[in-house]
Every structure is written in C-alpha cells, then in structure tokens.
Design a protein around this nucleic acid. Structure first.
Lengths: 198, 198
DNA sequence: CGATATAATTGCACTCAGTGCATATTTATT
DNA sequence: AATAAATATGCACTGAGTGCAATTATATCG
C-alpha cells in the first residue's frame, strides 16, 4: 500500500530495466545482422545472457522486441508534445508542428533500419500500420484536450486521421523520392493539399 | 502455353474451388462457435474433410481463412466500382458513392460476426487495419485511372487516404452509436466534415 | 483405351513461437 | 537471521507452419 513514485529504484528494478534494455539492444542487432525471421528467440535470449523462458517475462513476442523503441516511444512523445501546445492554431497546424518537432528524433540510421525490417513480413507491416492508428488515437486525444468545447469528437477525430495520413504519405514519398529532402518539405506540401481537398 | 481463359473447368479446378470454399465455410463456422484462437487448424482440416497438410496448400495461415471473404472481396469490388465511374464528380464524391454502393453487401450478420472476430487478437486487429490500407491503395489507383492528368499522384493519394479514413470512422461511429442509423448517414457527415477541414 | 505427364493429397518429421507449472535463486522487509 | 515476494530457470506441452518423399487422382497424348 505504498506509492511507488518516490522509491529510489532498488537493485530489482534496476536489473530489470537493464535486462530489458539488453534484450532490445541485442535483439535489434541480431535482427539487423540476420534478418527478422532468421533470428530466433533462443538466439536473442542467449545473446542477452538470459534463459529462453525469462525472455517471455520481458516481452510477449518477438515482434514486441522490434517495436520496443518506436512502438511506445513515438505515441508517448506525441502525447507530451501535444500537452504543451496552445489552442491558438488550427488542429491540423498544431499536429503538423508536433510532427516536425518529433520527426528529427526518428531520422537516425537505426530508425531507418528498423523501418526496413518492418517491411519484411506481413505481420510486421500490419503492426507498423497499427502504430499509425495508435498515433492517430493519441493525436485525437491531445486535440480533444486542447479544444474541449467540441460537442462531438468526430471532427477532431477526422482531423487527426487526416494529419496522420499526411504524415504517413510524407514518410512514404520521402523514401521513394530518394533525394534527401527533409521530412518537413513533404509534410508542408501534404498539409497544404489537405486544406484544399475538393 | 495455352490460354486458361476459355477452359470449361475440369474436375481438378472444380474440386479445388469446392474444397477452398468448404474450408472457408467450416473454418468460419468453427471460429464463430469456439472463437478464433480456440479453433486449431487440425479442427478446420478435419471438419473440411482434408488432411492438416492439405490445408496449407489452400491457405498460408489461419488468418487467411478468416480474411478470405472480406479480405480480397472488398478491394476487388471497389476496383470494379471505380472502373465504371466517370470523372464528372470530385474524387471524394466519387469515393463516397462507391462506398455507399458497396457497403450494403457487407451489412450481413456474417460480416458483423467476422468483424467482431477481427477484434479478438492483436494480429487480427492489425490485419484488419492493413485491409483499409489495401482499400486506400485500390481507391488511389482507381482515381488515378479516372483523372490521369494529375502530374503528381500525391493529391489523389491524399484524397484516397481521407476517403478511407472517413469510411473507417463511419464504421466505427456506427458501431459505437448502437442505434441503427444506416452507414450512409455517418458517411455523409464525415465527408462533409472532410470538406471543411480547417 | 492405355501410357505417361502433371497436379493434388497425404504422412512424417522437423523448427520455432508461446504457455503452464513447479522449483530454485535473488532481493526486499522486519 | 528469518521470512515474504519477486525473479529466473528448466521441462514439458500445444499449435503454427515448412520441407520432403510417397501415393493418388486427373489431364493429356498417341
């Protein structure tokens, strides 16, 4: 019956955090070296210095290891970014600015490599798409907090959907164009096109 | 080196088609009775009167059985519906009309049941979302055929994305509202809101 | 029709993901 | 130091999915 918020983190929590991190690191490294499917959970567990059985007390599936970073990271970062926005601008403009602010964190080589891995399987592609839906939900929640006067959430939900779509297509276009325009370029273009949807 | 388009379908093709159908039918019935996860491939194979090994010469996975109907059906139907549209209306209006035309086919009890099953697993939810992406791609292709003058596909891609989003939210809202408004109601509202995205 | 090529079905053995359970070890509490 | 709680591990199991080789059914051709 004690609040966990002020405990200085004993050895238990520390080791658990370290092991969790070690699994993600070694797992990612193995995925990159041998591909996703060719990497077995036994390999990850052995490389992380734990038993196969213990692996499953940290992650529910192999996919979760690959999605550990971006999967929970981006939605949470977006939640925070939205929380410190004002309601001065339009919902779409607010979303655009948040995206630009966050995009830089995910322009690393590792993110690009993970993204390539996320194309290698039907299930992984599906999981990646699910991530966009989670982002959409997070964005809609953030918008609802900024503009609570909206009697019906549908408008904001649609705006969030459109914004995430613009983000998704921006990422897609940038990959296909293969000349290194910054993400902001595609983002601006797509949001402008959104505004004049006939 | 012969064209298969005019062969009258021998016993081989017929039996194969029948078995395929039987797997879908019995599989769906078992999913509905026992749930998706509790239904094993052995059960489906036995109920369909084939060996476990033969199952995999018809379907690559258990998911594919559940997605057999809607998974390939809707995108293909949309492709056909788009093919017989003119370029008189706007892209969004064209999409809306196609959706309304197709929606009725998927308002059966079976569709609703399948849809409920598609919520029962992380992987299935992800697959359902992937379906919307496939629909989006199909819609964008259809639009591109109707308005080929667009030098850049991005505009139509965004329109397709917005249209599918409106469809997705319409389906969602209708489920949550639980008073039986026809899908057309939500569809019209969402497309109207899309037009005035500020 | 009969011979032969081709496709479909099946059984078997295998790998791997994921789970339940019981036991041992580590860490926290008093 | 004693005890409680969390964690780690081993073992055995189910179920998905694949490779391979043998068997059976169907199509094709002379």
């Amino acid at each position: 019956m004690e609040n966990a918020s002020d405990k200085p983190e004993g050895r238990r929590a520390q080791k658990r955090r370290e092991t969790h991190q070690r699994i993600v690191d070694t797992g990612l490294s193995l995925f990159l070296r041998h591909g996703y499917e060719a990497t077995t959970i036994d390999m990850i567990a052995k490389a992380a210095g734990i038993s196969r059985r213990s692996f499953f007390s940290y992650f529910g599936s192999k996919e979760d290891v690959l999605l550990a970073r971006v999967g929970s990271g981006f939605p949470e970062a977006l939640r925070l970014a939205m929380a410190e926005q004002s309601s001065q601008m339009t919902p779409l403009e607010t979303a655009r600015q948040c995206f630009i602010k966050l995009a830089s964190r995910y322009e690393t080589d590792e993110s690009a490599a993970v993204d390539r891995l996320l194309q290698s399987t039907v299930a992984l592609r599906a999981r990646k798409n699910a991530l966009f839906l989670e982002i959409e939900q997070t964005l809609a929640d953030g918008m609802h907090a900024l503009w609570p006067e909206q009697e019906c959430r549908t408008e904001l939900r649609l705006a969030a959907m459109a914004a995430v779509g613009a983000l998704r297509l921006a990422l897609e276009d940038r990959r296909n164009d293969d000349d290194g325009q910054p993400l902001e370029y595609y983002l601006d273009r797509n949001f402008a096109l959104l505004a004049e949807l006939s």
